[in-house]
Amino acid sequence: MKTSWLVPLAWLVPLAAAAEPIVHGGVDVDELTPAGMQRLSVTAPTEAARPVRLVYGRGTTPELLVDVRVAPDAAGARDALAVRRRTVSHPPPEAPLGDTGFGDAGFAAFVRDNVFVAIHRVAGAADVLAVARAIDAVVAAAPPGAPTLAPGARRSYDDAQLGERPVPVEFPADLLAAQLEVCGPAYARRTADGWVVVRTGPGLVTVRVLGVDRRLRTAAE
């Protein structure tokens, strides 16, 4: 009996190893909104390896913080999970979420393929585990595809191109949110009409857009 039980298992191991890992081409942000809530904000990370922060709530009160990292591969997603778990002072137990995950009614995090998700309840009474399961299903159903965006081009401004008057920075239309990385004597700030670069001194200024698209993909590192 033992032999007959082990043989099929032995067959399965190489089969599983041979299977191509699924790499999702991101997840549609509009499919992540928990029932009864609305998305209050999306914050792009300042570095590609960091998660995108989504905030949900009823009305204007934030209730759920959802961090999503669409990593280039599963290893990247698991790294994000390990990092996140460390910052929870009293981590919840493991839970049947994704490929691996932990959580309870107040906090949950998991990895499904190349996607890391963390859900943190900061107000209200939403069942975080139920929300996590719903998001896990969305991730699992997300189609394969490119997990990252092409790196944004760097733009340089000399003293003549960027003077006292701030210069608008155009974003690709398909970006959901973005941050600007500015090198040189200048800084970026948001206005009602979009981002601008403000010079603080003479010298070359270089700007790069760090964006996230509607599938929560960031630029390749």
Binding site: A49, V83, P92, G106, F107, H120
Partner: peptide, 13 residues
């Protein structure tokens, strides 16, 4: 955070 002591405004990437 009396549930899990999770951070809201911090990250250690």
């Amino acid at each position: 955070d009396d549930v899990r002591g999770a951070s809201a405004y911090s990250d250690y990437p």
